[in-house]
Simulated scan of single mutants.
Amino acid sequence: MNEVITTLLNHRSIRHFKDQQLSDEQIKAIVSCAQAASTSSFIQAYSIIGIKDKEKKRKLAEIAGNQEYVVENGHLFVFCADLFRHEMIGEIEQKEVASSIESTEKFMVALIDAALAAQNAAIAAESMGLGICYIGGIRNKLDEVKNLLKTPERVIPLFGMTVGYPEKINDQKPRLPQEHVYHEEEYEQDKSVYLQQLQDYDQVISSYYEERTGGIRKDRWSEQMANMLEKQTRMYMKEFVQKNKMNLR
């Protein structure tokens, strides 16, 4: 076991931070590590917006569901899918690139590039003794986020990441069993095996919540997911993506 693996295996979301800002050197190092991530065909189809201004953080926190840790942290990063620069490249090189940029494939590339960069940033931050939490709630009202961050067409804010010095560290949530996630040679399609793995995991999660909350919560993972997926959320997303000239052809 080396330090990198130890850092990865110790990950947990941090939602309580000390009142201590990241230094410019720390921010630069985190962004440099994000940029070192793999990128499909060297396309680098993402951008990162750093937020220090407390009022902007507060507005983003409101959009994300009034999550206080979006305001109170060491630094807030917003990761964006970005094909704007590629449109500019087409103009510079006098090439017709719009059809490619507006394809589902390039949209997926931009999403994947941004996610890879973000995870590198997260690992870099945690290796410094910092904590992180991803903020998907900014997608609740992306029109407002775009106006606040002044992002152009072909740029879509995907998620935020709060980074800072942990004030409180919660117990780590147990993940799905590895045999349920990792398949060799082909996907496991024996439903009896699949359902048994889920039932076993449900018991692990129920016990985790019961112990963590002193018996207040005992919900199962399958129960959580079914309740969440039953509700339709952010159903405007396809229209929003198309409006921002990522037309998913």
Rank of each mutant, 00 (worst) to 15 (best):
N2I: 13
S13V: 08
S13W: 03
I14K: 02
R15W: 02
I30Q: 00
I30D: 00
A36K: 11
I48D: 01
E55I: 15
K56W: 06
K57Q: 02
K57L: 05
N66D: 08
V71K: 04
V71Y: 02
N73M: 09
N73D: 04
F77E: 00
F77T: 00
V78Q: 00
F79D: 00
C80I: 07
D82H: 10
L83H: 04
M88R: 10
E91L: 14
S100K: 05
E102F: 10
S103V: 04
T104R: 03
I112V: 15
D113N: 13
A122C: 11
S127R: 09
Y134R: 05
I138Q: 01
N147D: 12
N147A: 13
K150E: 07
M161C: 08
G164N: 03
K168D: 02
Q172W: 11
Q178S: 07
V181C: 08
Y182N: 13
H183V: 06
E184H: 14
E186P: 07
K191S: 13
Q196W: 05
Y201D: 03
D202Y: 07
V204D: 01
S207N: 12
Y208A: 07
G215R: 12
S222A: 14
R234Q: 09
Y236L: 11
E239K: 15
K243G: 07
K243T: 10
M246F: 02
L248M: 14
